[in-house]
Amino acid sequence: MDCYSFDKIISDYIESNLNLKQRQAADEHIAKCTRCYEKLADMVNLLDTMKSLPRYKTRLDFNDRLMARIDRHNQQKESPFIRVFHEYSRVISVAAAALLLVATSLFIYTSVVAVNNPSSVPSAEIRSIKPGTNIPRTSASTHPEFVNSNGENTTPDTSNIENPGYEHNIMMVNE
């Protein structure tokens, strides 16, 4: 037996859990290895010391504090709100889980629809209008404000109106 093997069985040696053959091998090793012999003696001493370490006691008011906690717990259990909550806790949890599931499904559904069919969702983009560019007024010709009682288009002629000399940022909505 070498020192490494002795380390592995040192606890079994102390607690007499070795068979005769192993015990003899260990005895032979510690008879010639001072390091392992000292280690064994030191370990036995350490374990004895640990067994006799001071024992601490709970404080005198420990039971009173515990009983006060139990009283508080019992009072809480008796309060009508808590009682109802406990009684229906399973139903409440199931309802909350169902609500969460519905909300999540709805969110996923709308996201999927938006990805697959972008035209169904209005989108917006910002375009820059350079100075001097005519701003198209295509929708104005059909606007009821510019149609007279005979159905004629009275849209004012704006073709000669130029964009003023500053840049506009206009939000164009694709319909």
Binding site: N45, L46, S52, L53, P54, R55, K57
Partner: peptide
Amino acid sequence: PSEAYNPEKETTSSYGEKQI
């Protein structure tokens, strides 16, 4: 822990409680 909690035994070994 404070001495007020009265440890039942004192150790006489080469290892002190604090070290352990």
